[in-house]
Write a protein that binds this DNA or RNA. Structure first.
Lengths: 209, 209
DNA sequence: TAACAACTTGACCGGGCGGTCCGTTTAGCC
DNA sequence: GGCTAAACGGACCGCCCGGTCAAGTTGTTA
């Protein structure tokens, strides 16, 4: 990746931008199964050029996802000083679901295991979300027995659920976000039936480095 | 499919059972991407035999899913006369999540569009769930502004969410079912932000027949 | 403008997939 | 036991995928 090296030649930069846009669209439409050849066609470039910019399909995917993740991290960071922590968390979840039409957490999982930069980005996002959740809990806006990781995991559920209905209206996921968020607000009837997953966040990922 | 025709020869019946078991396990582990060759190997039979029993990989998948769906329908039907409608619905959702480790609704979607029998089975399940939801609502056990289809769509979310954590303890989905169910119990703060999806249940599927 | 390095390209490769086919095996019946 | 139809199995087919490469093109710099 020649991002920090010499500046790209003009045509290469143009192609790279077109490639990223095409990849984003194609991944959003077809998911992980989008083919490199189709992405190249959509970008109006040759398949070989794709692999010149990104040595692997996974790297291309990681680059696309990285943008989204960093954007969400920035938003979370901005919201972490908002007046109403509960509303801030809801707004974050709203933005997360809205921006990740189809580009859901499963991408983070599949691509994140391979790519180091994306893994680091994800870790930063997780930290920010944990902050948001902690503040919301301190303000009494959400129940005290859920963890930041719980919220992260639930983050993409609205999109996933709404994705099941074939001709879904564009904002249907909002309906399910509202229901799930009500579940996060509710004090709950009795303790949750299972302990939370390890809050360190998929720790075996960072152990070897 | 020679199910209703002459009885199968003894070895064929044996192979068919082994095939279904292997397919179920393999689909559960690898999802839609499980390969027919691998399923055959696991069942200890040749690949050709697989296609003798099920003309298509989709048909095999549909057969596996059909079992689950019919089982759930039977359970829902049994629960629809329970004393406590709220507890009955929760128990149903619990059983649904428990039985469909990984064999989630997306299978219903992908395979259901192709296979008519599975489509009919799914429709029957949906009817029963709607019944369960209606009773729970009449008893005041869950909020009145969600529909049966909402619940069906949310049904597989717990598994999906728990599936994100790599070394998940086996019952982690129960945690998220509890949170989501609390969202279904909560009266909610204000009306839901989006109207429910068409409750007829993916109607364009049955229109042409 | 000349010359070079950066860049592009599409034919090509190996591999895995769903699905087919036919020579071989075997269960069931007399 | 012998016969037949049913069932089996794995070599094989065509397809599409991610990834490579050598030959051609183009932006840049002096």
């Amino acid at each position: 990746m020649a991002t920090a090296d010499r500046p790209l030649r003009a045509d290469a930069a143009r192609n790279r931008a077109a490639l990223l846009a095409a990849a984003e669209a194609e991944f959003a439409e077809r998911g992980l199964e989008a083919s490199v050849a189709e992405i190249a066609r959509r970008a109006g470039i040759g398949k070989g050029t794709v692999f010149r910019h990104f040595p692997t399909k996974d790297d291309l995917l990681a680059a696309v996802v990285l943008d989204r993740v960093d954007g969400l991290t920035a938003l979370a960071s901005r919201l972490s000083t908002a007046d109403d922590p509960g509303a801030a968390l809801l707004e974050f979840l709203d933005a997360a679901a809205s921006r990740q039409q189809q580009l859901d957490l499963s991408f983070l999982r599949e691509a994140g295991e391979v790519n180091d930069r994306l893994g680091a980005s994800r870790a930063r996002l997780f930290e920010q979300v944990v902050l948001l959740v902690d503040r919301a809990q301190a303000a009494g806006a959400i129940r005290s027995d859920v963890t930041g990781l719980d919220v992260i995991l639930l983050m993409c559920a609205p999109n996933h659920v709404a994705g099941f209905v074939p001709g879904a209206p564009p904002g249907l996921w909002r309906r399910y976000l509202a229901i799930i968020f009500d579940g996060l607000r509710s004090p709950g009837s009795g303790p949750l039936p299972q302990p939370p997953p390890d809050p360190v966040g998929h720790p075996e990922r960072f152990r070897s480095s």
